[in-house]
Amino acid sequence: MISDQAKKEIDFWVTKYPEGRQSSAVMQALTIVQNENNGSLTGELMQEVADHLQMPSISVQEVATFYENYNHKPVGKHIIRFCHNISCMLNGSDELISYLEEKLEVKTGEVSKDGLVSVKKVECLGACVGGPMCQIGDQYHEHLTPSKLDNILDNLK
C-alpha cells in the first residue's frame, strides 16, 4: 500500500537521524503516507509505516492519534482546521464554525457532499493574536469574519 516513491521519501527522512533511530522519522513518514492516500490513514497503513521503520505498531498509532494533523477517516480535498481555543473562542470562532457548517452544509468532522471540504476543530494553531483563525493546507487565515470566510471559500477549487 505504500508506494516505492513514498518509501524513498521516508528513507530520505530516516537518513537525517542517527543510525538505529529510524523511528524518529515517524511523523514525516505518516505525513507522506497520508498525503499519498487521499489525506487519511488506516490501520493497515500505520502498520506498514511501523514495518518500514522497524518499530512497534503501537508506537506509530500513538503518534498518529495524538497529533491532530493525522486523519483516520476520509477527508475532503481541503481540510479547514478551525481553532476553537480560548483566544479564538473569545473572538467568535464558535459562531464562525457554525456559520461555516451551515454555509457548506457539513458538520465538524465530516466531508462536504461535493468532497471539496472537511471541517475540523483543533485546540490551538499558535496564532492567538490573529483569532479567530483557521488553517487550510499550509496557509493561516487570521482575523476571520463571515465575509473573509466567504472570500476564502470562493477561492477553493
Results as ranks from 00 to 15, higher is better:
41 L>A: 06
141 H>A: 08
113 K>R: 13
93 S>P: 04
135 Q>V: 05
123 E>R: 06
123 E>V: 01
140 Y>P: 10
150 D>I: 02
1 M>R: 04
32 I>K: 02
157 K>M: 11
125 L>W: 06
113 K>D: 15
50 A>E: 06
152 I>H: 03
108 T>H: 07
85 N>E: 11
115 G>A: 03
73 K>T: 01
101 E>I: 04
99 Y>Q: 10
59 S>E: 15
73 K>Y: 06
43 G>P: 01
44 E>Q: 04
43 G>H: 09
78 H>E: 07
82 F>A: 15
20 G>M: 07
79 I>M: 09
44 E>S: 03
117 V>N: 03
111 V>L: 06
38 N>Y: 11
138 D>Y: 09
24 S>T: 07
128 C>S: 12
98 S>N: 11
111 V>Q: 06
33 V>S: 01
129 V>M: 09
34 Q>N: 05
37 N>L: 00
12 F>D: 10
47 Q>S: 05
55 M>P: 07
43 G>S: 10
139 Q>H: 07
54 Q>M: 12
38 N>V: 00
153 L>P: 07
126 G>H: 10
71 N>S: 05
101 E>W: 05
52 H>E: 13
88 C>I: 08
103 K>I: 11
81 R>I: 01
136 I>C: 05
145 T>L: 08
142 E>A: 07
59 S>L: 15
142 E>W: 06
41 L>N: 04
86 I>M: 12
12 F>V: 02
147 S>G: 03
151 N>S: 06
115 G>V: 02
105 E>V: 12
22 Q>S: 13
136 I>L: 04
125 L>R: 09
104 L>D: 05
155 N>R: 09
70 Y>H: 08
65 T>H: 15
105 E>S: 13
75 V>N: 00
97 I>S: 06
86 I>N: 15
139 Q>W: 00
134 C>R: 07
6 A>V: 09
144 L>W: 06
55 M>Q: 11
102 E>F: 04
114 D>I: 11
14 V>T: 05
60 V>P: 15
155 N>D: 08
135 Q>W: 00
110 E>G: 02
71 N>G: 05
28 Q>K: 13
121 K>E: 11
129 V>G: 04
10 I>E: 05
